[in-house]
Design a protein around this nucleic acid. Structure first.
Length: 480
RNA sequence: CGGGACGUGGCUCAGCCUGGUAGAGCACUCGCUUGGGGUGCGAGGGGUCGGCAGUUCAAAUCUGCCCGUCCCGACCA
């Protein structure tokens, strides 16, 4: 028995994650480009499925896709004070082009609020032009000091929605509507339960009035901010002079929103479901849903088995692994590591019985099924798996969420938690949205992840740092 | 960007301390064999030892600088 190429989660969660990404053929470090990765076929196919799910929902809510330049005049970033302050440390700047020094350097887009603000100003004149609802699929460059594949890389792929509205209420509705879209995709497509909430003022997007996020729990109990949606107020409208004439003929600044999810979601997907054997993909995001592995001994068997395998596989939409010179065992491990939800085994014994052996990736259970039933039962099985994976993740989230009523309790739960050893929790405690509270959490390397939109606990209470009354408990955790 | 570890055929690593003809296992190619969870045997191909300088008769090995990866910290989706 060969040794597993995958480090166990218990031994070292961070190395496990790395192993799963590599062995699952999702991505690998770009090595010649610092902090960047190559997203490989299996990883990119997952991204394409996610893109489709998201894009369909964006279109359904009235958004249209645009594409803006990746090069942004440096001065644009400076027009919004908080924005430039927030992003300056991670900007990559182009100072030379065509062999000459540029008059004004370009930054490689870290996000597009500024360049889109410029065009909004050009396009928006009247209340009739509003709301303007657009989205962009793009690559982003942020000079991160520490990178991890999918979770944080120098270059990554994302979508950024940008909208402009005639009043604040409508903008806020948009912010919450898109947060709901993200939560829907996370839970119903990725099978990854999330908590929707408001970011604290110190955690919000640079330049926003308010930021909302969905927060997911990884298997080591760390939080992952899986999507964000920002109420930009009139900050960018004022910075870029985006004004429209209202019905009364007066000039007003627009109210803007922006919202995004990135390839980071794939990291979240991996850390939500995968196990010590490798990648586990929810059926809805599996590029290959079922693989049939033919098993045979003699040439005569081989012919019969392969014929039946191709016929049945075609019928049920499975891929046949008919590679020569690979033993069935080797094939099982191969597809297992790549996260394929269902493996069908077909050998002489099954042919004789009219069955195929069905193995599901999430639970590892294996059972024979009549060939005639496969076409109808496989979709049902995939649906069951999708649900079971969500339920398991939800259960884990519940089991690892605890209440705390003092700063000492919070600290005792989180102080020894590390990304490698795991044991992380979501700690629910009453805390005020106040820099003092954020600072206190930082002392043991935790953060206020969000103030949940829905209070599932005991309502108002006294802030455990400031003693002031607050509405509800917030989510405290160590995070990626 | 600070601290630590590391970089040797595609992969995992030995060799380095004590300088002297570059190794193993896996993978790959060919042949036979095998096939219900990584078959076995035999033959074969493949490496400017991360890069650049330096010390030396001689550098994978010693020294310096640089690049990259991983972990920890500060910054972040």
């Amino acid at each position: 028995m060969a040794e597993s190429p995958i480090t166990s989660r218990a031994q070292d969660f961070a190395t496990w994650y790395q192993d799963v990404v590599l062995q699952g053929d999702m991505a690998e470090p770009a090595e010649i480009v610092k902090g960047c990765m190559v997203i490989k076929a299996n990883g990119y196919a997952v991204w394409e499925l996610l893109q489709r799910e998201l894009d369909d929902r964006f279109k359904a809510t009235g958004h249209q896709n645009y594409y803006f330049p990746m090069l942004i005049p440096q001065s644009f970033l400076h027009k919004e004070a908080e924005h430039v302050e927030g992003f300056s440390p991670e900007l990559a700047v182009v100072t030379m082009a065509g062999g000459k020094q540029l008059e004004e350097p370009y930054v490689l887009r870290p996000t597009s609020e500024t360049i889109i603000g410029h065009f909004f100003a050009k396009w928006i004149k009247s209340w009739r032009d509003l709301p303007m609802l657009l989205n962009q699929w793009a690559n982003i460059i942020r000079w991160e000091l520490r990178t991890r594949m999918f979770l944080r890389t120098t270059e990554f792929l994302w979508q950024e929605g940008h909208t402009a509205h005639s009043n604040h209420d409508e903008a806020v509705q948009e912010v919450l509507r898109m947060l709901d879209v993200y939560a829907d995709v996370a839970e119903n497509v990725m099978a990854m339960p999330v908590i929707k909430g408001l970011k604290t003022q110190s955690e919000k997007f640079a330049g926003a009035l308010q930021s909302y996020s969905i927060e997911a729990m990884m298997q080591n109990g760390f939080a992952l901010q899986a999507g964000t949606s920002h109420d930009l107020g009139q900050n960018f409208g004022k910075a870029f002079d985006v004004q429209f004439q209202n019905k009364e003929g007066q000039l007003e600044y627009v109210w803007q929103t922006s919202w995004g999810v990135s390839t980071r979601l794939i990291g979240g997907l991996i850390m939500s479901h995968s196990d010590d054997k490798g990648l586990v993909l929810p059926p809805k995001l599996a590029p290959v849903k079922a693989v049939m592995v033919p098993i045979y001994r003699k040439d005569e068997e081989k012919e019969k088995v392969l014929e039946a395998a191709h016929r049945i596989a075609k019928d049920v939409g499975a891929k046949v692994d008919d590679r020569e010179g690979q033993s069935p065992g080797a094939k099982f491990f191969h597809w297992e590591r790549r996260g394929v939800p269902v493996v069908l085994e077909l050998g002489p014994r099954d042919l004789a019985a009219g069955n195929a052996v069905v193995k599901r990736r999430d639970t590892g259970t294996k059972e024979p099924m009549p060939q005639a039933d496969l076409a109808s039962k496989l979709p049902v099985l995939l649906g069951d798996m999708q649900k079971a994976m969500y339920d398991a993740a939800k259960q884990r989230l519940k089991a690892n969420t605890v209440l705390a009523n003092s700063i000492e309790e919070v600290e005792s739960v989180l102080k020894d938690v590390t990304a490698e050893k795991g044991g992380g929790k979501f700690v629910m405690a009453h805390l005020k949205d106040d820099a003092r509270c954020d600072a206190r959490m930082k002392e043991f390397k935790a953060t206020i992840r969000c103030i949940p939109l829905v209070d599932e606990y005991d309502g108002p209470g006294k802030c455990i740092v400031t003693g002031e009354r607050v509405d509800r408990r917030v989510v405290i955790a160590k995070a990626y």
